[in-house]
């Protein structure tokens, strides 16, 4: 689903956080939003999801103002969002339960179970269905969050620094897992990160934000075939280009 972010302005009290942010995302595109820590990336994501209202500007999904009741949006949060009292299975099911109970989705119990099973297998969590979150690793918890979002078959997947809390090895692994899933489903993804390498490794295009108040500094196309080699000269070149753009010190 096409996304149009048009002139978003947001301030918290006196503090201007987002200053006329505009960019577009094509259907099926993987876009990374990259900027320094504390530049309002999370705020921007919440506005795109419709969880926060901007002071001015609008977000259009397939030409309509964003509404999480009408549009099917998957959101993977930066903070741990798993429900500790639910098993892996129960967590993945959570979004579907909301859709059925609040939005009137007509799904039978079997259809819900089928989707949950599909999503769990997709991210490779089979065998862990009856585990509680505190029994599984940090990477697996983020897989639960991803499966939960994918189980509802979202039009748009928003990921807000989903791997920020993971160690480097797990992060590489999760990035590859995400690409594996994405190449299968070709969802529209907006992925926020402050790791430039992660952005260049994952995305078709990188939207570079400045530090506060955040503006779009540049849009960088990453037209490299996947799987990408982080040591290839072209990769390093793009990474350096973005690093120069983002340098705020």
């Amino acid at each position: 689903m096409d996304v149009e972010v048009k002139g978003i302005v947001k301030s918290f009290g006196e503090l201007l956080v987002l200053d006329h942010i505009s960019f577009n995302v094509r259907s099926g595109e993987f876009v990374a939003v990259c900027g320094p820590t504390g530049c309002g990336k999370t705020t921007l994501m919440k506005i795109i999801a419709g969880l926060l209202k901007p002071d001015s500007g609008e977000v259009l999904l397939a030409g309509e103002p964003v509404d999480y009741r009408r549009h099917n949006i998957g959101f993977v949060f930066q903070e741990p969002s798993y429900l500790p009292w639910r098993t892996v299975w129960g967590n993945v099911k959570f979004g579907l339960e909301a859709k059925v109970s609040s939005l009137g989705w007509k799904l039978t119990r079997e259809e819900v179970d089928k989707r949950v099973k599909w999503a769990i297998e997709l991210v490779g969590l089979e065998g862990f269905e009856s585990y509680y979150p505190h029994q599984i690793s940090g990477g697996m918890k983020q897989k639960v969050a991803l499966a939960q979002a994918l189980a509802t078959d979202p039009h748009l997947l928003l990921m807000d620094e989903p791997f920020g809390a993971l160690d480097i090895q797990t992060r590489y692994y999760m990035e590859n897992e995400l690409l594996r899933v994405w190449s299968k489903l070709r969802k529209t993804v907006i992925f926020v990160t402050h790791y430039i390498e992660e952005a260049v490794y994952l995305a078709d295009r990188v939207i570079v934000l400045s530090s506060l108040p955040a503006k779009v500094k540049a849009e960088v196309d990453v037209s490299l075939p996947r799987p990408r080699d982080v040591t290839s000269s072209r990769f390093v070149e793009i990474r350096r280009e973005i690093t120069e753009l983002i340098r705020w010190w």
């Binding site: 959101f75 909301a98 609040s102």
Partner: peptide, 27 residues
Amino acid sequence: QVHVELAKVFGGDRSFILAKVVIPSIM
């Protein structure tokens, strides 16, 4: 708050949030 926002973004209404987020959290 993350749990509440998670439920919201999936379209969960007030009664869903009360039953599936608030009550289990405070039990």
